[in-house]
Structure formats: C-alpha cells, structure tokens
C-alpha cells in the first residue's frame, strides 16, 4: 500500500509528526489508537515519532501476554514498529522512575528524555497528536 502512495511533489523532507501517548496499554483503546495512527502515518511516509509520557511508559513492559486476558498483546504491536520504519521512540525518564521501571529493557530505537528533552521534541516537530 505504501509503495502506491503518491508523494507530495517538491518536498524533500516529509512533515515531522509527533504522537504523544500517555495511557496504559490496557483498560482503554487510547494506547492502541496511538499505535494505529503511527502505522497509518508511516504508510503515508510521514515518518512519525512516538513519545511515551506518564502512564504511556507502561506500554513498553516486555513479556506482555495478551492471551492471559484474551486480548491482543500491545507489546507485539510495539515490536512491529521497526518494520514500518518507525524508529524514533522517546521515553519519559520521570515516568520510568515513578513506576520503578528505570532498569527495564527498552526497544532498540528508544531514547530516554527528561523534561527539557520533551520540550525540545514538542518544539522541533511540525504536528503533534495526543492520545
């Protein structure tokens, strides 16, 4: 599908889209919507970046077992992001501390950012969508 998408002419750089996700992976559909949007944006060559803030860092726990609750594993969807060239992932340092997850293994592309770094991300992109 992505290969058939017409590119905007005369634009060397695709617009930079930042998706901010602040919800835990289960209990509502917000976290899933953020990933679905990321995949859709990637299919249109928008090169989205993902920022996991607040409760959003709970989405990154390894070894999630969706089958235990007969739901789809959020972790499995996250693992597929590199296949869609979504390789800019930012993680809220303060939230990791809040949940005692500072030693958790993160996705290879993930970069831990503090409050100043988060501000720089928000300033540096063209569009921001919050989930």
């Amino acid at each position: 599908m992505a290969s058939d998408t017409p590119k905007a002419s005369g634009q060397a750089e695709p617009p930079r889209l930042l998706l901010v996700t602040r919800s835990p992976p289960y209990g509502s559909s917000l976290a899933r919507s953020a990933l679905d949007t990321a995949l859709a944006a990637a299919a249109f060559d928008m090169a989205p970046a993902l920022l996991f803030l607040d409760h959003g860092v709970l989405q990154l726990l390894p070894q999630q077992e969706g089958a235990a609750s007969e739901t789809r594993s959020h972790g499995k969807v996250l693992d597929s992001l590199p296949l869609y060239d979504i390789d800019r992932i930012y993680v809220d340092a303060a939230a990791l501390l809040h949940f005692g997850l500072q030693d958790m293994p993160l996705p290879a592309a993930a970069e831990v950012v503090d409050s100043t770094g988060i501000r720089a991300l928000l300033e540096g992109c063209d569009h921001i969508l919050s989930f």
Binding site: P24, P25, Y26, L58, L61, Q64, E65, A68, S69
Partner: peptide, 13 residues
Amino acid sequence: LEDDARTAGVTPQ
C-alpha cells in the same frame, strides 16, 4: 489477579 499481571507483563518483575 494473575491473568491481569501476565497481560501487562508485570509477572516477571
């Protein structure tokens, strides 16, 4: 609740 802990990936830690 064990099933919820496993779903969330909490069980190993």
